[in-house]
Lab assay of single mutants.
Amino acid sequence: PAHPYDRLKTTSTDPVSDIDVTRREAYLSSEEFKEKFGMTKEAFYKLPKWKQNKFKMAVQLF
């Protein structure tokens, strides 16, 4: 299930529990994912792991 970005980011005051914290981005809706990352999930997962992590750090999901 998708969760709002505000509850997934590492600085959230009301974090979602029971998620894989190493894959926070996977819980974003497709729309919100595209808004935050500027690309689709499919394109994101084709990137090298280090680049994925760099993007995730930039949007507080790492």
Score class of each variant (00 low, 15 high):
residue 13 T to N: 12
residue 34 K to L: 15
residue 37 F to G: 00
residue 16 V to G: 04
residue 7 R to D: 08
residue 39 M to D: 00
residue 1 P to L: 12
residue 4 P to E: 06
residue 21 V to G: 07
residue 1 P to T: 12
residue 34 K to F: 15
residue 47 L to W: 02
residue 53 N to L: 12
residue 32 E to D: 12
residue 41 K to A: 08
residue 17 S to L: 15
residue 1 P to S: 10
residue 55 F to I: 10
residue 35 E to W: 12
residue 45 Y to W: 06
residue 14 D to A: 05
residue 5 Y to K: 05
residue 20 D to T: 04
residue 7 R to H: 07
residue 52 Q to T: 00
residue 49 K to L: 14
residue 19 I to H: 02
residue 4 P to F: 04
residue 40 T to G: 07
residue 19 I to V: 08
residue 59 V to G: 01
residue 52 Q to W: 01
residue 3 H to Y: 15
residue 20 D to M: 07
residue 27 Y to V: 03
residue 18 D to Q: 05
residue 49 K to A: 10
residue 55 F to K: 14
residue 14 D to C: 13
residue 22 T to P: 03
residue 9 K to W: 07
residue 32 E to Q: 09
residue 18 D to T: 07
residue 21 V to D: 11
residue 43 A to W: 05
residue 33 F to W: 01
residue 1 P to R: 11
residue 25 E to H: 02
residue 13 T to K: 09
residue 28 L to W: 03
residue 59 V to Y: 12
residue 1 P to W: 09
residue 29 S to V: 09
residue 25 E to Q: 03
residue 5 Y to N: 04
residue 39 M to Q: 02
residue 59 V to L: 15
residue 11 T to V: 04
residue 50 W to N: 02
residue 10 T to R: 01
residue 51 K to E: 13
residue 7 R to A: 09
residue 5 Y to T: 03
residue 31 E to A: 12
residue 44 F to E: 00
residue 27 Y to R: 01
residue 25 E to I: 09
residue 22 T to V: 06
residue 58 A to R: 12
residue 35 E to T: 10
residue 10 T to Q: 05
residue 31 E to G: 09
residue 30 S to G: 11
residue 30 S to I: 13
residue 22 T to K: 09
residue 40 T to I: 04
residue 15 P to Q: 05
residue 10 T to H: 06
residue 36 K to G: 01
residue 27 Y to I: 03
residue 61 L to C: 14
residue 8 L to R: 00
residue 22 T to N: 11
residue 61 L to M: 11
residue 19 I to M: 02
residue 55 F to G: 00
residue 56 K to H: 02
residue 26 A to W: 15
residue 5 Y to R: 02
residue 25 E to N: 04
residue 14 D to P: 05
residue 12 S to A: 13
residue 39 M to C: 09
residue 5 Y to I: 07
residue 15 P to R: 04
residue 41 K to N: 01
residue 38 G to I: 02
residue 62 F to Y: 15
residue 40 T to R: 02
residue 8 L to P: 05
residue 27 Y to H: 10
residue 8 L to I: 08
residue 61 L to E: 03
residue 46 K to P: 00
residue 8 L to Q: 04
residue 11 T to W: 03
residue 45 Y to H: 02
residue 36 K to H: 11
residue 51 K to H: 08
residue 23 R to V: 04
residue 41 K to M: 10
residue 14 D to K: 06
residue 47 L to Y: 07
residue 25 E to K: 03
residue 60 Q to V: 04
residue 5 Y to F: 08
residue 3 H to I: 15
residue 19 I to C: 11
residue 28 L to A: 01
residue 16 V to T: 05
residue 15 P to Y: 03
residue 60 Q to G: 12
residue 10 T to G: 04
residue 42 E to D: 12
residue 4 P to M: 06
residue 62 F to P: 12
residue 46 K to D: 12
residue 31 E to S: 14
residue 40 T to K: 07
residue 5 Y to C: 13
residue 55 F to P: 00
residue 52 Q to C: 02
residue 16 V to W: 03
residue 15 P to V: 05
residue 42 E to L: 10
residue 45 Y to L: 02
residue 9 K to L: 08
residue 59 V to T: 07
residue 13 T to A: 10
residue 32 E to Y: 02
residue 44 F to D: 00
residue 23 R to P: 04
residue 40 T to N: 11
residue 36 K to D: 01
residue 61 L to D: 07
residue 8 L to F: 05
residue 59 V to Q: 10
